[in-house]
Amino acid sequence: MSATNSTSMRDALYESPGPHTRRRIRFWTAISLVLVAVGIGLIVRRFYVTGQLAPRYWELFARPTTWIFLGKGFLGTIEVSLMAGLIAIVLGFLLMLGRMSSSRVLSGICRVIINFFRGVPSLLLIYFFFLVVPTYGVKMSSFWMITLPVGLAASGVLAEVFRGGMNAVPKGQSEAAYSLGMRKMKVTMKIVFPQAVRYVIPSLISQLVVVVKDTTVAYVVSFPDMLQNARVLITNYDALVSVYFVVAILYILVNYAINHLAVSLARRSGTSIISRTSENPV
């Protein structure tokens, strides 16, 4: 859940303060303001005394070439994230269908696969595609070496997201369809799934944040994403601290924007975001 929709409860926690309490709150507000200012001051001082505020570390950000180069990397990040997201959606959808099928065997297998992908770090999958797959003679470009593992890792979570969405569709809908003589496949694809999409879209978007984060290890397979291009900038300008901080801030802003979009969509459609945290762990 986001910070924004919790404001009401936050404010309910304390009644409107009387004059005495107001004075106390004002006192502690002032103290904490000073503390925060001192904290920021100390951080800036640390940058200053170690010489990291020197213009030569920061003037590269005034050149358009820097931003064009970072932008190219960012395009790479977008490409990889979207492809990984697509893989995760398709595979997650198939896994969900298998998990919800009436065949015990198929359902069991899909359950194991889903839990496997949810229980294994994406980095391990990346190393699998980077180190293990080539030894079996499969040639892959760095693009697929990063998109496939990231997509696989997300597919387990998405399968559960889809399942949550399917279960959120009122039972009467599928019952009505069955009584009209539709087959199970048709009911799933034509009646339940189209309605489930409405519930899952915010969750899909918020899962994109996880995908974007996972793609930042693209340097392992030397795919030119934003972080990889940042490393090139660092060797070119010999400005490590400033570049890493700026790139981190860029990632934070992008992910914040995606999260914000997901939350506002969820609020508008009256659904809640299903993520890894809100599902059953086993």
């Binding site: 910070a3 984060k213 972080l227 890493y244 790139v247 802003l253 999260n259």
Partner: peptide, 28 residues
Amino acid sequence: DLYVQIFRNIPGVSLLIILVYALPYLKI
């Protein structure tokens, strides 16, 4: 709020790299 927004949105690798490679420049 700021703390939560920063650290839930920063990629783990990016943060790790800052701690490992950037902080030594700041004498940490």
